[in-house]
Design a protein around this nucleic acid. Structure first.
Lengths: 206, 206
DNA sequence: GCGATTGGATCCGCTTGCGTATCTTAACCT
DNA sequence: AGGTTAAGATACGCAAGCGGATCCAATCGC
């Protein structure tokens, strides 16, 4: 916590350092106690500061929420391994590792926020991500088709996004990350067969 | 609301009538304001009674929660139309109609309850449903295999329960019931092909 | 170095929900 | 009919969070 200087000299943070400490504390509180535990009192105490400091910067609680989410939300990196199966596994593992807590947070802990503000998840996403890109798995499939690994026929969005939806579903059910076998299972016994591929047609086992 | 007698005579409810009014009000409050709005004050006001009446019957808030959920939780009826496709569509439509709000409630609004009590969804389900039966879609598949509509090979639980999971996923994403086209889409473009059936092999379209 | 910012501590009144106690009186039992 | 039970109204002290106001001093800009 006190990592400035070496002496026990009391340090008073300012500017960006202070804001990072606050949004960091806000993030922790959000993950631990959900949106209804997301109080200025709790966040200020955790950040080692006091309420007026928060009110000066974020007059509304929603402002602080947005600032906190913005800081901790990163778009997914899209893998490109040359194999559709490997791309899918890599992407799902990334989602599982990076979004395990975030998905729960956004979809469950923020339910109260959505109801109170009358907003929707898509409203929030629009505020966090500037442009709406094509879904990650659509990119994987497009590339696989360009490589000739898949025939270039139109596929329903439901089939294309199926792995993402299933992993998200399992994360929501278990309230956390899923075991790696689940990811392999989804890809090998559900998705690839649906696309007309065998798990071993593209590359050998895991 | 006042359906006893015909005169506007004030009625003081007792016994089962009173308990039904309270759990009904509790259910409404739970759906509207989630678990953190599930306060004795709000429920008593909505039921037209007062807090001590609630405390006499359910000393802990959890007791009232369990009583309320027990009243409004019905196991799904398993359809038997003679066609796997029709069974699946019927079951999913039932889930969609009856569980639309309940799934959101149990999986999202009760997240705070689970964290506060340190319990899990499966703990709650064990308290609501005495015995754990085989999953609904496993029953459908078993019957289809018995009819000869499907070959009797072992199938992974993930594939068998896929429609249920996908409908639940979409309900969680939209925080409500899903359109009927979604259900048909899941069955016809995902599930039946995965089982090696064409949508029209068993019965013609919708 | 000195003055202007601004972090951090403390206090305020207000509201909501808690869990309990008291009291009246409507509804039931026999 | 009369006695018992319990519904419903009201009030209580307590605690937490709200959204500010006030004040002091640490830190920065000049």
């Amino acid at each position: 916590m006190s990592d400035r200087h070496e002496e026990g000299a009391p340090t008073r943070r300012r500017g960006a350092a202070l804001e990072n400490a606050i949004t960091g504390a806000a993030w922790d509180v959000l993950l631990e106690h959900g949106y209804n535990g997301f109080t200025y009192e709790a966040i200020a105490a955790r950040a080692g500061t006091s309420k007026p400091v928060l009110y000066r910067r974020w007059p509304q609680r929603e402002d602080l929420l947005i600032a906190t989410l913005t800081r901790y939300w990163h778009p997914l990196g899209i893998p490109d391994t040359g194999s559709l199966r490997q791309d899918a596994l890599t992407l799902l593992r990334t989602v599982n590792a990076e979004r395990g807590r975030t998905v729960i947070l956004l979809r469950i802990h923020l339910a109260d926020y959505f109801r109170e503000t009358g907003t929707d998840f898509s409203d929030l996403r629009d505020r966090l991500l500037p442009a709406d890109r094509t879904p990650p798995f659509a990119q994987l499939v497009d590339r696989a088709a360009a490589r000739g690994e898949l025939t270039d026929v139109p596929r329903s969005a439901r089939v294309v996004n199926l792995p993402f939806d299933l992993v998200r579903h399992d994360m929501l059910m278990t309230m956390g990350a899923v075991p790696d076998e689940t990811i392999v299972d989804i890809v090998d016994t559900v998705w690839l067969p649906l696309l007309g591929l065998s798990p071993h047609a593209t590359h050998a086992g895991h």
